[in-house]
Design a binder for these strands. Structure first.
Lengths: 135, 135
DNA sequence: AATGAAAGCTCTTAGAC
DNA sequence: GTCTAAGAGCTTTCATT
């Protein structure tokens, strides 16, 4: 990880579909060199993969919420939970929930409540969009 | 958004750098058709962009935490906060913090504590890796 | 580790259904 | 909205430094 690798990661964070030749122009190197660096970043597990950033609202999921819960299995089995971390504290799991309507959110949480207590905070907006820490 | 678009999004979620011809093979269409569909998904703001999934641990950030706080500005200004949502509840912001050491985490939280009360939960692991909701 | 040149493949555009 | 065909551009390989 040198300054050039940092430049490559920053550029790919903004647009992961940049061609190797465009990336090469950005960092001032030849395409084969940059291609080899990206390959090494993947092999070294610095780059875990490349993903698409989908606006779930644009496909009908109007409500997002953060849900704390004790039981992991319930989260993993429900595809409406799109992310879950194990954290310190009384309820060990914090999950991101995505649903079409408040009614659907209530359905999901009611179903969970039969097995575990949950604590829910509805997401009203995004203050900082996912970004890389300083490299 | 039809079944083909859903297939395209699912495939790009797994590997956003798939070539249009590979994507075309996967969904059983020609490359120009798939290319046009991806272009429309971007134009229609369903696809917000393409990003790289970087393992922050592999670049030295050993500690992750979720921090609740009242003040938004403090989060936006600190690049160690890599994500922040505005939520319902007493502390209106929930942010993801990434630091090298426990000492650095303490430094960041001490600095914040001069201006606002925070509540922190350290992340011990990931139970569900970021995924798309049902399409 | 990086470069330039060349072969092979991919993307995009154009035109037709 | 999708297809095929062809030209432009890209990625990859390899010899070289």
């Amino acid at each position: 990880m040198d300054a050039t690798d940092a430049q490559i990661l920053a550029a790919l964070d903004l647009d992961a579909r940049l061609s190797m030749s465009e990336l090469a122009r950005l960092v001032g190197m030849s395409a084969p060199s940059v291609s080899e660096r990206v390959r090494r970043l993947e092999a070294g597990r610095v780059i875990r993969g490349f993903t698409v950033d989908v606006d779930t609202r644009a496909i009908g999921y109007q409500i997002r919420a953060m849900v704390r819960i004790r039981l992991e299995r319930l989260i993993q089995e429900r595809p409406e939970f799109v992310e879950c971390d194990k954290i310190t504290g009384d309820d060990p799991f914090l999950a991101r929930l995505v649903v079409h309507t408040i009614e659907q959110m209530d359905d999901v949480l009611e179903a969970l409540s039969e097995h575990a207590v949950t604590s829910t905070a509805v997401i009203k907006g995004t203050s900082v969009k996912r970004r890389l820490p300083p490299l």
